[in-house]
């Protein structure tokens, strides 16, 4: 099952890289994909759960989550650009802990990666049992230390909880 999934993924990637795939590319792709499956067999994958096979969730992820994510990404990028270009460099970095309510592996992974991908915050570590995400922030406000990170995490979390819980 896992092997089939990896093989299909590799083969599709190969086909896209050889766009438009001719007969030659299609035939060569099969042994190449099989070779990749053979070579990466020792890499432990996470458990395949039922969440991976519900297309409704995937569609909601792409059409509900992605636009919001890219908009946040763009806004944060402008903010970081402003801080970097400012002559006095107005940054107040800190590592703060943020509680999260997500329990599933895939939800936590997506949350941590989203936080990492948005400029101004990086997820440093994740405490799986307590559900705590450690986030490195470029700027924290003087009165409310974990406010910025918390707002950002909750914004993503709100949607991810609906999709993956």
């Amino acid at each position: 099952m896992k092997r089939m999934a990896v093989m299909t993924g590799c083969y599709l990637t190969w086909c896209f890289f050889n766009w438009v795939p001719g007969l030659q590319a299609l035939i060569i792709g099969l042994p190449v994909a099989a070779l990749v499956v053979y070579l990466t067999e020792n890499i432990p994958y996470g458990k395949v759960s039922a969440l991976h096979f519900q297309p409704g969730r995937h569609l909601r992820f792409i059409f509900h989550y992605m636009p919001i994510f890219w908009w946040e990404h763009f806004k944060a990028n402008v903010e970081v650009a402003y801080r970097v270009l400012h002559p006095r460099l107005p940054i107040r970095p800190a590592v703060v802990r943020v509680k999260t309510e997500l329990k599933t592996d895939i939800g936590l992974t997506l949350l941590a990666n989203s936080v990492s991908l948005v400029p101004g915050t990086t997820s440093v570590d994740l405490d799986h049992e307590k559900g705590i995400l450690y986030v490195h922030c470029m700027y924290v406000s003087p009165t409310d230390v974990d406010g910025v990170a918390k707002r950002r995490v909750q914004r993503f979390e709100k949607i991810l909880v609906k999709i993956f819980e």
Partner: peptide, 12 residues
């Protein structure tokens, strides 16, 4: 950096 406000991760 010495200007870092707080490091909860190191504390924990």
């Amino acid at each position: 950096w010495e200007g870092t406000i707080v490091d909860h991760y190191a504390e924990d």
